[in-house]
């Protein structure tokens, strides 16, 4: 019996080497452990054995069965490997370049904008937006800059013809329609549509009738900020701007508020920045943005009681910040869209 079992296992092992496919594996399995398989036949012979023989033979049979099962398991792995190799084809050279295009990139102005907005979000400012084509009232009059105010000379404005009607900025009376010269018009729209207190930051495109050169562009971007609340102070203004500058230019950047003039803030300041990490512009005061406390007249024009509400406002040029942060020397790069420029910010 022992010999018979040993022969059976040896024969199966030999036969197994020829098995290559799943069908052959199934056929082989049937020949050995199927209902009429060779091992099954031996096991059936157990019934004829005596009480004394059974444990001995049983042990031998179990050993043979175990060997066959191991053989089958190994064969299954072999067959599956062959199947997988057939399904997948030749092996991959992992050093080959991927034929697919890599991810694209955000424009440096978008990157800068998002970075700035993220800083102000930390201070509880939320993003507001407004139309690019504006009424003269929203862009100037409501900002305490009536017609023939000399402050209008500070910006040369692009106008739309009299017949132009904007769906987004309908006229209040017969005022001119223009391309907004600053995002400060969003201040007006926000004060008219929301109840204070609020803090908004308004990124957007602005337009001036300027000839294009290394520092001027017919359109450019600003980020405007407005905080309306009770008892907003100059100290708050310094706190907000100081935070922003340290977020954007690092902890060793410092600011100063230099008195200036804007019709819609009183007092008004230019905020200058000085940082040791700005390349050839390091350690010099650089003009970054205009700011101030909201002029009471503006609050009044926008329907807020200046005895109850106060505010601070600021506006910065996105191009200016992006140029400083990335060391870009010509504003026209932003609008030329040469990918050799754009991909540097991927």
């Amino acid at each position: 019996m022992q010999q018979q079992l040993a022969q059976l296992v040896a024969a199966a092992t030999q036969e197994a080497s020829a098995v290559a496919t799943r069908a052959e594996l199934e056929a082989f399995k049937a020949r050995v452990v199927g209902p009429n398989g060779s091992l099954t036949q031996v096991m059936k012979g157990m019934a004829t054995l005596s009480k004394e023989e059974r444990p001995v033979v049983g042990k031998l049979i179990n050993e043979a069965k175990k060997s066959v099962e191991e053989l089958l398991a190994a064969l299954l792995v072999k067959v599956e490997d062959a199947e997988i190799a057939a399904a997948l084809g030749a092996s991959v050279d992992p050093t080959l370049p991927s034929p697919d295009a890599p991810a694209g990139s955000l424009h440096p102005l978008s990157r800068t904008r998002e970075r700035i907005l993220a800083s102000f979000r930390k201070l509880g400012f939320v993003v507001a937006e407004g139309p690019e084509v504006e009424t003269e009232w929203h862009c100037f009059d409501a900002l305490n800059t009536p017609a023939d105010h000399p402050a209008r000379d500070m910006q040369d404005t692009l106008y739309m013809p009299k017949a132009f009607r904007s769906a987004d900025a309908p006229r209040k009376a017969d005022e001119a329609i223009l391309l907004r010269t600053h995002t400060s018009s969003v201040q007006v729209r926000t004060m008219l549509s929301r109840k204070p207190p609020f803090r908004i930051v308004a990124p957007g495109r602005c337009f001036r009738r300027d000839a294009v050169d290394a520092t001027h562009s017919a359109n450019f971007h600003q980020v405007e900020g407005l905080w309306i609340d009770r008892n907003v102070t100059l100290a708050d203004l310094r706190g907000v701007l100081d935070f922003f500058v340290k977020e954007t230019f690092g902890a060793d950047a410092e600011i100063r508020l230099r008195p200036s003039f804007f019709p819609f803030t009183e007092p008004s300041f230019e905020m200058d920045l000085r940082s040791p990490n700005l390349g050839r512009l390091s350690d010099r005061w650089l003009e970054i943005m205009g700011c101030g406390l909201v002029d009471p007249k503006v609050l009044e024009l926008c329907g807020l009681d200046p005895n109850e509400w106060s505010g601070l406002a600021f506006g910065l040029g996105l191009e200016r910040i992006a140029m400083l942060v990335h060391g870009i020397d010509d504003i026209r790069h932003f609008y030329n869209n040469d990918t050799r420029f754009l991909r540097q910010f991927a």
Partner: peptide, 22 residues
């Protein structure tokens, strides 16, 4: 202006969200 210190820390106003265009 250098004699004005930076002001109080401020907490966000709950419920305010960015404009959906943004």
């Amino acid at each position: 202006t250098d004699k004005v210190p930076a002001g109080r820390p401020i907490a966000p106003l709950p419920g305010d969200e960015d404009a959906l265009t943004s």
